[in-house]
Design a protein around this nucleic acid. Sequence first.
DNA 1: AGCTCATGTGAACGGCTTTTACATGAGCCG
DNA 2: CGGCTCATGTAAAAGCCGTTCACATGAGCT
Lengths: 245, 245
Amino acid sequence: MSWRKEQRRAERGYHHGNLKEALLQAALGLIAEKGAAGFTFADAARMAGVSAAAPYRHFRDRDELLSSIAQRGFEQFESRLTAAWDDGRPDTVTAFERVGRAYLAFAREEPAFYNAMFESGLPVDANPALQAASERAFNVIRAAAERLAALAPPGTPRPPAMMMALHIWSMAHGVASLFSRGDAARRKLPMSPDELLEAEVLIYLRGLGFPTDRRPAKSAEPPPVPPEASSGSGVPPGGPWGKPK
Amino acid sequence: MSWRKEQRRAERGYHHGNLKEALLQAALGLIAEKGAAGFTFADAARMAGVSAAAPYRHFRDRDELLSSIAQRGFEQFESRLTAAWDDGRPDTVTAFERVGRAYLAFAREEPAFYNAMFESGLPVDANPALQAASERAFNVIRAAAERLAALAPPGTPRPPAMMMALHIWSMAHGVASLFSRGDAARRKLPMSPDELLEAEVLIYLRGLGFPTDRRPAKSAEPPPVPPEASSGSGVPPGGPWGKPK
DNA sequence: AGCTCATGTGAACGGCTTTTACATGAGCCG
DNA sequence: CGGCTCATGTAAAAGCCGTTCACATGAGCT
């Protein structure tokens, strides 16, 4: 009856060799399936082929495993946002919107990370490393907002970059957690979450006085790269939303 | 040692008399304290002074209790949003922003409900009654957006009300779940969550072409009520954000 | 070859969820 | 009033999980 476990053991020996990593991977899969709440320490151990007590050699407790995953998640998140931002190329507004799409893409493609980071209820502030990682990710948005704010049309008061960053973050997180994940994604929407967020951001930027109908703006921005005939996903003609019937 | 339980029993008799309600209240308190994930069926039973098996006479399982709470939450939510909207008085934009503040206020003041509704991970779509309640609440925002959209400045394409409603919802939910609750509220922000959301909505509405500097707009809106010298929390002079230094 | 210590095991404790058989007593019926 | 019935409660038990502890194993160093 227990030949399974014995065989497992025979295959890999008494010592696993890479248990910590195996546990992280197992947990990632389980969280993606059943959410951080449904994820079980014992299940991860089973999946790695070790006893229920083994994980305690690598993580103080279940929460520490979760924190480790959230930590990695923030790091990957930061890296993806940074890549999307691409230092503002080919122009600030285009790059800014690409960051928004990257946010949603991450939430969709890495549900386990996203869950651990934002929906697991673990106290980010209680863990300095975690908090720092979270802050580094946010700083990508913040830096992008900074560049954008610097381009504010002359004559109008310049919007605080920090505020813009918080606004953008809240929009992206709102769309992701309400419409882009799990079964909530099944709400019938008139448009895809990506389109929804893109329109939202465009309208917001327009509210700040940024020209958004054509990119790059014909304003004072020095194009770091010759503008390509970009953006198959750019603004549809007639504004950020489809043409009204 | 067990005089406690015996005494409890002596006080209220073998039958509790109102266990279902007592369990709901207990659960509400527990969820507010420890989150939906940390909430325990057994704990609620203990708090109500009954055995661990008693709750099963009133709820199929732990999830059904959670669903009941979410259901009530959506109902109260709807009622509070409806009150805040007040049928668009004294003017549409003012009322619209009041709905935004009511959203945040609900998230802050009823953390247990909000948690059960949006953060407990229970499948809203799987429960028709729950889904319907959720939809009714959203419809308040949707109706408000409808009224607002009808006031779109002439000459510009009229924004779809559904899209506006989804945008506003995502902003409110984003701000609430990132900045307005639990320990995440401790992120040092340059402004309160309420101010943050208010500015976000105002900038967004401006992006749609709505005049937001003074309310009621001097546009075509027929004021249903003589405009009061309202809004101690209205737009500060100089735009939706504070004056830039 | 032998020692040591990181890593893994099994057993055990307490707590939770859920089921089952049984107990209680409130409300109804004659 | 006496007795029946059934909703509502209880205790006990099975199965799972998290966590701890004493003990086993074997990889790597000397």
